[in-house]
Nucleic acid binder design. Sequence first.
DNA 1: TATCTATTTGCATATCCATGCAAATATTAT
DNA 2: ATAATATTTGCATGGATATGCAAATAGATA
Lengths: 118, 118
Amino acid sequence: MDMQIDKPQKRDKNVWCCGIDGIPSPRFFKALSDPTRLNIMLYLAGLREPRTVSQVAENFPIDLSVVSRHLSALKEAGALLSEKTGKEVLYTVDYVFLAEMFKGMAEAMESCCPSSQE
Amino acid sequence: MDMQIDKPQKRDKNVWCCGIDGIPSPRFFKALSDPTRLNIMLYLAGLREPRTVSQVAENFPIDLSVVSRHLSALKEAGALLSEKTGKEVLYTVDYVFLAEMFKGMAEAMESCCPSSQE
DNA sequence: TATCTATTTGCATATCCATGCAAATATTAT
DNA sequence: ATAATATTTGCATGGATATGCAAATAGATA
């Protein structure tokens, strides 16, 4: 009489950590999960100035079209800002967005931290 | 006479942003880039208590073996801690590591932010 | 218009990876 | 030793994706 249910479904109540509303989507992390893409982001972060697709591509040993796609993906994820001037497209790091994002994660983790309470 | 070099190699000097030493590897972001894996991490973060592989698996509609792999990957990335007790393996969120990681990223971005200086 | 430059997009390919299932391993209990 | 439970691992597979090349598009210039 032990009928096997597909999944026991004795789930925990999902009390997400504190204010974990500002948690980034997996897509955000996915954008930074590729080595080339992460390096492109860090490269732009270090420059502190906009760069065109071609300029960025000069600094990476991959095809320009691939760089274009990476930049586009990073922008989609919110990590970069872009501005079109003439036939060129300028990309910059969205420092504010990234800082907020990471700060939110850090605070969520700290307020979750069992040692930080009681 | 315009010999085509493979790549112009007129690279920028890579002045990485400020103290961007503590930048996580792509593998760290990759660990959080999968929806299921991110949810598992957040699930454990919200509980604030260790859970076994089976207990975690009860809360996700995927095979237990897959959950086992995800937990292992998250541990490899530094996001989780594990402890073996008897035949069970307990996983917990490494709050300290994650908080440090995200705080470091946030600070790096803030100190990079052009508007925050000069 | 025609041409040149910058960027994007379509397509093919090779690799990576999440998943499920089955078998193996580890640990405890009988 | 045998059995039962918890976890890991081997293997196959379908789907995602990073990459390169070529063509298309957008914009500036002659």
